[in-house]
Design a protein around this nucleic acid. Structure first.
Lengths: 253, 253
DNA sequence: CCCGAAATGTAAAACAGCATACAGATAGAA
DNA sequence: TTCTATCTGTATGCTGTTTTACATTTCGGG
């Protein structure tokens, strides 16, 4: 088996495919690297084909005609994105960007559809992934419908801890560089509001903030304040294995 | 073929199943009627099994601990709901209610999963349905992130016209009984705000309002006001055939 | 036909978050 | 280093929305 397809083989989604099916997919799949903040697809792109994130982090964005931006979702390694184009042709209505340097497999729509026809396992796996994303989005929806900006921000911090939390002497570091603007785009607020809220939380001794750096000092109380269970901090390992290092990912664009 | 399964057979989702598979499903499926406003499942229910709406209309709701309610989605005949329970055990985190008198098939999770294993067609169909719902929810999310209450309400009216619009001499009737409270729960606002906004729109000669009755008088201008294409009014027929009349659906509960 | 629950209408006060307008701080590039 | 773009901090007025507190109307069931 060639090295190219190594990730795909190791992605739980594809583990039930036969060797033959895998090599078929391999022949058609393309791998590509994207540097931090570059676009992976645009809303105007023709929406066939699906993307599988091998490494990095991808954000799904939406922009209004008057330029306002929101982040709809973050994609983790091993997850698909752009996959709704499989079923509904036409233009995509969102944008995908690499949040950090990322490596992505491009799976042609036709091939993937054919494989799905022949593998109920694969179909089921994809269904699960889409369903999981729907659950995430439903949670965001509830959050927007019911919670204040401050609560949404607190909630977001807790979620981030779950994925990027790192124990430190001073507290739990959210090990991910996020500007206030980005936080604002996630919770649907303005940058200024986020700055103010973070300041408030710092004053309340819940967190300490630095430039693109947030340390949660009192997880207990933070979780309490939004009536939520204290999150577990995920182990640093990924279920999706780290690929052979790409020489210079910044040149991928 | 028995009459019970007639709907299932005619649901595009299941049309590719063999006779044998159908009768297998038939043996396990249960049909049940729910009167207007009754609960179909609760958040505390064990979340196995999936529901197929045969006739009527179902709303998916979420309630906070302090009693605030929101409507996450509406289900049309031929669509599945509660289907995420197929993949993630545990309690459901939403509630389903009959918005009008409704007839529902209950498909046991095990059986459906087994069928999905054996029919890639079926898996694909279910994936499409879940994906469609995700698209709807993503649209709601954008709407909440970007639009004001008034714009969200205008937007909602346009969507409702698409599904329930009925041409009348005075304009286009939204042929669905909805209280201000319900409208508010959909767009994420308070009842009072909705009352005020509807009043405003009436003053602007965009609509006329009566008790649980809204007539859009100037569709053109309404669509313009939220920068959206004028919606088509769907034909009254459903892609899902009307079942043999149930004697007295109100007795179903 | 009457009554009670639900739906609707209205209005004042309080508030949260936004738009706007700056100014200082910092990192990364040249 | 220096310079510039990005990020952060802060203040102010304003607007839209919620909250609260009612009064009124209407439907539907007994």
């Amino acid at each position: 088996m060639s090295q190219t397809i190594w990730h795909v083989k190791n992605c739980s989604l594809f583990e039930k495919l036969s060797e033959e099916q895998l090599s078929q997919l391999e022949g058609r799949a393309r791998i590509r690297s994207f540097p931090r903040n570059s676009a992976i697809y645009l809303p105007t792109d023709i929406s066939d084909g699906t993307f599988l994130l091998a490494e990095g982090r991808v954000r799904i964005c939406s922009t209004t005609s008057d330029g306002k931006q929101a982040i709809l979702d973050f994609i983790k390694p091993g997850e698909l994105f752009g996959e709704l184009g499989l079923f509904h042709e036409g233009e995509r209505d969102e944008r995908a960007e690499a949040a950090v340097d990322s490596t992505v497999y491009l799976l042609p729509g036709d091939d993937l559809r054919r494989l799905m026809q022949n593998s109920a396992e694969l179909s089921l796996g994809i269904t699960k992934l889409i369903g999981m994303r729907r659950k995430r989005i439903e949670r965001r929806l509830r959050s927007l419908l019911f919670r204040s900006n401050r609560d949404r921000l607190a909630h977001l911090l807790l979620e981030l801890i779950e994925q990027y939390g790192k124990h430190l002497a001073e507290g739990i570091l959210i090990d991910l560089r996020l500007s206030h603007q980005e936080l604002a785009s996630i919770i649907g607020a303005t940058r200024e509001t986020v700055t103010a809220l973070l300041g408030e939380m710092q004053y309340d001794r819940l967190i300490t903030v630095g430039r693109q750096r947030i340390v949660v000092k009192d997880l207990q109380r933070l979780a309490q304040s939004v009536d939520v269970a204290v999150p577990e901090i995920a182990p640093p390992s990924r279920n999706y294995p780290k690929p052979v290092p790409v020489p210079d990912k910044l040149s991928g664009q």
